[in-house]
C-alpha cells in the first residue's frame, strides 16, 4: 500500500509539466490556428498557409518535436529547454488542426452573415471579432474540446526529449521496480482524470455560454 502511495505521489509530480505543456501549446495553437484560418480568406497568403498546414498534418508529431528540440537550436544558435520546445512543437502542430476546425466552422456559417455585415457597413476587423468568430466558436466548441483532449494525450511524447511528465515518471518507476502494470495504471488514472475534468469543464462552458441563444 505504501509503495502505491509513493508511486502515486511521484507520478503525480509530473502533472505540473503535463498541464504547463497543455496550456502553453493550447494558447499558441488557438492563436495561430485562428490566424491561419482567417489568413486563408485573404487571397495572397492562402497557398502559403495551406502549405504549412499540409506539412504539419502530414508529418508525425514526434518528428516535429525532435526537429524543434534538436535542429532549430542549431540553426538559430540558442538552446531551447524541454518545456519551451514542447510548447512550440505541440502548439504549432495543434494550430494546424485548430485551423481546420475553425475553417469548417467558418464554412458552416451562411454566406449571408458576411453579406449582412457588409450591408451594415461593419468594418472587416469588427465583422470577424464580433459577428463571425463568436458564431464560429459556438459551432466548433465540441470539436475544440476534443482537440484539447487529444493535445493532452499527445503531451506524453515530451518523454522522448527527457521531459519529466506523467508518462516519463511512470516509465522511470517501471524501470526501477521491474513492474510496468502499477505505474502505467497510475499514469492512466491521472490522464483519465484530467480528461474527465476537461470534458466536465467543456460541458459547463457550453451550457453557460451558448445555452441562452439556443433556448
Amino acid at each position: 500500500m505504501h509503495r502505491i502511495i509513493v508511486n502515486f505521489k511521484y507520478i503525480g509530480s509530473g502533472v505540473a509539466l503535463t498541464l504547463a505543456l497543455l496550456l502553453g501549446s493550447l494558447s499558441i495553437g488557438v492563436a495561430l490556428g485562428v490566424l491561419f484560418s482567417i489568413l486563408r480568406y485573404s487571397g495572397i497568403s492562402r497557398l502559403f498557409i495551406n502549405g504549412i498546414i499540409s506539412v504539419l498534418r502530414g508529418t508525425p508529431l514526434i518528428l516535429q518535436l525532435s526537429f524543434v528540440y534538436f535542429i532549430v537550436p542549431s540553426i538559430l544558435g540558442f538552446k531551447l529547454n524541454v518545456l519551451s520546445a514542447g510548447i512550440i512543437a505541440f502548439g504549432i502542430n495543434s494550430a494546424a488542426y485548430i485551423a481546420e476546425i475553425v475553417r469548417a466552422g467558418i464554412e458552416s456559417l451562411p454566406q449571408g452573415q458576411f453579406e449582412a455585415a457588409k450591408t451594415l457597413e461593419i468594418p472587416t476587423f469588427y465583422m470577424w471579432r464580433d459577428i463571425i468568430l463568436p458564431q464560429v466558436i459556438a459551432n466548433i466548441f465540441p470539436a475544440m474540446v476534443n482537440e484539447v483532449i487529444a493535445l493532452l494525450k499527445e503531451t506524453a511524447l515530451i518523454a522522448i526529449i527527457g521531459g519529466m511528465d506523467i508518462m516519463r515518471k511512470a516509465q522511470i518507476i517501471a524501470a526501477e521496480q521491474y513492474d510496468y502494470f502499477m505505474p502505467l495504471c497510475i499514469a492512466g488514472i491521472y490522464y483519465y482524470t484530467l480528461v474527465l475534468f476537461i470534458e466536465f469543464l467543456g460541458r459547463r462552458v457550453e451550457k453557460w455560454k451558448f445555452h441562452a441563444r439556443n433556448s
Binding site: 452573415q113 450591408t119 459577428i131 458564431q135 441563444r213
Partner: peptide
Amino acid sequence: GFMFQDFQLFPH
C-alpha cells in the same frame, strides 16, 4: 438598406 430573404439576423 437591405433586408435578406432569410433575414440573416446575428443569432448570438
